[in-house]
Nucleic acid binder design. Structure first.
Lengths: 237, 237
DNA sequence: ACCTGAACACCGTTCAAGT
DNA sequence: ACCTGAACACCGTTCAAGT
């Protein structure tokens, strides 16, 4: 009886009519495990001990592991508080972008999972409709509406995904020391622009940082990126 | 002798002075496996049979699996042909963006891997320097240079990552049918904008598609997104 | 240094069996 | 329908041992 515990695990349906496990409970527990110890820690057996049941019981409610990961991603997306409809589309996109970033930063370990899989609308199409409505109010229509929508979704989510990409290894400090050292000793001839701006770039720019956005958020650069997005949409309108 | 094969596998160092395996060969073979059968197929044992050696030999040259995946990502990034230096920074960013997309589309199965991990500059900082030089020539300097660099990298890579995100399952046609059906029957009251533009959106927009960009590239939307990026940078300069 | 051969601890998934 | 208990096929990694 390795997996069973206090609940008095015994084969067969639980005595009462209500089931001990629900899909929702499994998914929320899974999110909890990922938040605390990362995706690598999310195994069927870990979930089972956490829930006080056997591995197969997890599978019974949440399906395959891929389905579980999708459910966890959707759970995070459900945490999005969409800004209400407004006539000011530029301000809507701005607050939407900030809100997406807030929701993803609340679960940084989930971001890489979302980044790797096609995210499906959460049941109803509330998220998509909200974005489309804001852009349509801004004058985008037809194919231009589609393009603007894809620009907003792709840029906002994509940028934050890049910011929150996983660090190689918590224990492996070698490569971070190596990168730090390589940056301070970068060749002025082969990389003059980088060498000339190394102090403002070190650990604050993509591909030039050794820490993820979870431990070193790129706040100012994000605000600038949002300005670029909104300004660019305005210009392309 | 399950893993060994024709090469006449026998314990000990190979007869000649040159080693049978090299790190480069392992990495290139790994990329080949990923290209053909996806990341799931990339296992130590698969690589071993492919190379005609034992699993531990793979580990000896390429290190841990995470390190191997990083090496595979870097291999793809090495495929980038950077545009030469020019005074026209807007055109440089444009061709750079198209080139990134081309390189990633050449290895769509690798994109989700890159999206999940912090990408490190490929040895020297050639990629970063090229972007920084182009932007500096455009008049960006100091913190603004950092922000513009992060906008370019985050937007371009992030957008293409989103485009190339993995489809849930090659065999699972249920959910794609479900999404397709849900879209055609979307409520005009709860999602008027989506309902009114469903034919231009279906399978052509993020969160509203059932196919990844590998089988359904979003060409027009990408060109628009690049225009937004360049136009936004111009406005923020 | 380079690789074998075998082992170790773990994983996702399946499935008959119970209630 | 819900869950147990055990099994199956597989995985990444380690390691003594050989040359």
């Amino acid at each position: 009886v390795a997996g069973g515990q206090g609940r008095g695990a015994r084969p067969g349906r639980p005595a009462a009519g209500e089931p001990a496990l629900t899909r929702d409970l499994v998914v929320r527990t899974a999110l909890d495990v990922v938040d605390r110890d990362g995706v690598r820690a999310l195994t069927t057996r870990r979930l089972a001990t956490e829930l006080g049941c056997y591995p197969a019981a997890v599978q019974h409610h949440a399906g395959t592991k891929d389905e579980l990961l999708t459910a966890v991603s959707d759970e995070v997306l459900d945490g999005l508080r969409l800004p209400g409809p407004t006539s000011d589309w530029k301000n809507w996109v701005r607050t939407f972008a900030r809100e997406v970033r807030r929701a993803l930063h609340a679960h940084p370990n989930v971001a890489p999972v979302m980044a790797a899989q096609v995210s499906v609308a959460t049941g109803d199409f509330g998220l998509s409709e909200a974005i489309l409505a804001a852009l349509a109010a801004g004058g985008f229509e037809g194919e231009r509406l589609v393009d603007a929508y894809n620009a907003v979704v792709g840029f906002v989510f994509g940028w934050v995904f890049a910011e929150l990409a996983a660090e190689p290894d918590p224990s492996d400090t070698d490569w971070s020391d190596h990168l730090r050292h390589a940056l301070t000793h970068v060749s002025t001839e082969r990389a003059p622009t980088l060498a000339g701006n190394v102090d403002v770039l070190s650990n604050k720019a993509f591909m030039l940082r050794w820490q993820s956005g979870r431990s070193r958020p790129l706040d100012r650069s994000f605000d600038f990126a949002v300005d670029v997005l909104v300004g660019g949409l305005e210009a392309a309108r």
